[in-house]
Computed example of a mutant assay.
Amino acid sequence: MSRHPRLAAVVTATAALTVLAAGPASAGDPTVSDPRVVAHFDAAAGERPENIALEPDGSADLTFSYARQVVRVTKEGVRTVLATLPEVADPQTPNIGAAIVSGIARAHDGTLYVNYVTGTAETGVWRIPPGGGTPEQIAQFPADTFPNGLAIDEECGTLYTADSARGVVWSVPADGGEPTVWATGTALLPTTALPFGANGLKLHDGAVWVSNSARSTLLRIPVEEDRTAGPIETRATGLTGIDDFTFTGHGDTALAALILDSRLELVRPDGSHKTVLTAADGLRNPTSVAVRAKTLYVPSAAYYATQNPDPNLLLARISRNKL
């Protein structure tokens, strides 16, 4: 999602004209309760949590975007730095300028993969060994790209990433290699008003799902038998300011982080949606979301707070009601 104040103002104005597809509450909706902030971070030090992957013990691996770090935070709020991405002397990151760490994905053996966006040769996917250590670049992207959301298909040995600048989805061999454009289409593109298109990305039920921040949409791209991309389907609209998202485990029911309005939105399979967490619960420009069993995790980067920013990690309880 955009980190630029001018872009934020454009999207805020657009949001005022957008009618959200908020449907009536359903008895089958998962419920969210007991929200609490378990860790606060230092905005001045660049500790803005951008994306999240979960460990088997319930700890959260977070990318601290401007600090160029990957940090593990326990459910009690204790944190450990796992890796720091190398400093870039003159970053030329599209639409931002500063070098940032964006998406993160975890393999079953504990290996972490992160996207590093610099506008230089360092832009690409970096691998961090289990338990932390020195990052290694395994794929280089063109300097004018913005690899954002990231997911791994271990069965096929493939990483997928959403490119917010070019508005495409890339695939990369998980053991390293040349990136390939996997999916293209108008639905993935940014707009003139907001140059951040395809953003969050998840693998779910035989498809690659992508959020488009500029178009306020949640998209589904089927993975065909030959591993190529099928036709892009728009599954939800009116999600103004959508950043990353995840699935609740209830079919195609999703939870989407709406960064500008500091809301977490529950998105039903029919595309209708409702707000389940707000700034009153502790959200400060949430960027991503994750679910493990009955625990919900929401990192907030507080990118747009002008006074007393509070980047944080919020946990809540989520029901496991069947739809």
Rank of each mutant, 00 (worst) to 15 (best):
T74P: 05
E55H: 05
L54I: 13
R106Y: 02
Q140D: 02
G28V: 01
D90V: 06
G185T: 02
G157E: 02
Q137N: 09
A207K: 08
V181A: 13
T63Q: 14
V101L: 02
L255S: 04
L112C: 11
R127G: 06
Y116S: 11
E225S: 08
G131P: 07
V267Y: 08
A15P: 06
R227P: 09
A214P: 10
T123R: 03
E47H: 10
P299R: 00
N285A: 06
C156A: 09
L159H: 03
Y304I: 00
W209E: 01
D144E: 11
R284M: 12
A279F: 13
P269D: 08
Y116D: 01
T240H: 13
F141Q: 02
T186Y: 11
N285D: 14
G249I: 10
G167P: 08
T84K: 13
V10L: 09
T217G: 12
L255K: 09
D261R: 12
F141V: 00
P130Q: 06
E136W: 09
V181G: 13
E122T: 12
A290S: 04
P130A: 04
H273I: 08
E55Y: 10
A207T: 00
T111Y: 01
D61Q: 01
V11T: 12
G131E: 00
V38A: 03
D163N: 03
H204G: 12
A83L: 01
D153Y: 07
H40C: 04
Q307V: 14
E122F: 07
D310E: 14
W170N: 08
Q69Y: 10
N95P: 00
Y116V: 09
G23I: 03
L201Y: 03
A39R: 08
A198E: 01
T158Q: 13
T80A: 15
L296V: 07
T31L: 11
A21P: 14
S164N: 10
K294T: 06
K202M: 07
N321M: 08
G197F: 02
Y113Q: 03
A27E: 01
G119S: 11
G251L: 00
R220A: 13
G46T: 03
L313G: 05
V38Q: 05
A280R: 07
V172M: 05
S272T: 13
T192C: 10
L239M: 15
R72A: 05
A83E: 04
A105S: 15
L82W: 11
G110R: 02
N95W: 05
R68W: 03
V276P: 03
